[in-house]
Amino acid sequence: MTPLIAALRDLLAGDHNADRVVPPTGFTARLTSFTAGAMAFLAVFALALSLASGRLANRWSSALAQRATIRISAPADQMAAQTAHVLDILKTTPGVASATALTDAEQRKLLEPWFGPNLPLDTLPVPRLIDIHETATGFDADGLKNRLAAEAPGAVLDDHTRWRRPLVAAADRLRFLGLISILLIGGATGAMITLAANAALAANAQVIRVLRLIGARDAYIARAFVRRFTLRALAGAAVGTVLGMLAMLLLPAADDAGGFLTGLGFQGVSWIIPLFIPPLAGVVSFAATRAAAFHTLRRLT
């Protein structure tokens, strides 16, 4: 059995006598619990941000992928003919699954957020929009643009790629930053717990000297510190995670109007993911305290 596995087994099994050799260290123990709790709380938010960014990127990608729009600008008396002509062109264009001209009511609804209700569309030079659904293989955008330019000069094709790509890239970057934040939180947790463990080890130098003198092995001495700090971090992280998840629950429900911010939370099975934060904090604490303890013990004869 490797020393690490043996240490993990001892951690889980516990040793009442080994636990008792280290006097209660209120300050460092409380610092460890608080740090782990605060970091777990932040990790829940970073995780939620990362997951929400991922969902956003997927939504933007899937919602706008294989969709395109044609905007027709023409005098009012020619608009219907131009629209019919463009629809005819689209019917014969390979890769176009369907094409539908938006009705006045649909266009009025689109413009309502900017111009308010009861917009008199017929008095404004509003272009007619045609919503295109592509087949899986898609159509030749450049070929269609050239054909429209030749046969329907007032029609302009917009396949959304120009603004969709940077949005998806931004969402992907946000997801990446969320993951980086989680890693940094994990690293900061490890660093803080290492500092607290070092402080506890320094404060208990006399205890360590006595234990070495009476023939205690390093593993026995380290075990008392490692178990204490790991359990403290685990408990603190559990509280921080629960509080973070409660805070997420209290956020407004996601809806179309709210968009990204109200979608910042966990959905469905993703609620399980933050439950991994406390055990991860325990692993970080275990590794950090064990490394600090053995580093300190190696300096003693």
């Binding site: 050799v21 205890v207 000297r209 003198l213 023939g215 390093d218």
Partner: peptide, 28 residues
């Protein structure tokens, strides 16, 4: 280091300043 610890179990040491773990009772 483990061998040194093992060896110290065979050598009892009484110091002048008698170092103990002050939070544990004498019997422990």
């Amino acid at each position: 280091r483990d061998d040194v610890a093992q060896m110290r179990r065979r050598i009892g040491v009484v110091h002048q300043d008698c170092q103990f773990l002050d939070h544990l009772p004498l019997v422990e």
